[in-house]
């Protein structure tokens, strides 16, 4: 069963769009089958348990039980290798 991953940012429009694009390319390259959706922080707050993994460009409250990976490295390029390594590991769990 493929993992349910959601990509979020504050507004659900700008930075999450960039991250979605990079993520899709990465997943395709690695041949990873993932259920990928895009949203914003406020929508996901109440539904965090719907997802296996949250990729966010903004800070997510630590009270959320679902695993969160910070995606700012994907935007800025600083530390993006580590991000993709962490992502791949989380998907293979």
């Amino acid at each position: 069963m493929s993992k349910k991953v959601v990509v979020i940012c504050g507004t659900g429009v700008c930075t999450s769009t960039v991250v979605m694009g990079k993520l899709k390319a990465f997943l395709q390259e690695k041949g990873l089958n993932v259920n990928l959706t895009q949203s914003k922080v406020s929508d996901v707050m109440n539904r965090a348990s719907d997802y296996d993994l949250i990729i966010s460009t903004t800070a997510v409250p630590s009270t959320i039980g679902t695993k969160v990976i910070n995606a700012v490295p994907v935007l800025t390029g600083v530390g993006k290798e580590k991000f993709f390594a962490e992502l791949e590991a989380a998907l293979k769990e």
Partner: peptide, 11 residues
């Protein structure tokens, strides 16, 4: 929004 979800990128 900036007050709630800041957009500074430390690069």
């Amino acid at each position: 929004r900036e007050g709630e979800y800041p957009t500074g990128l430390e690069i």
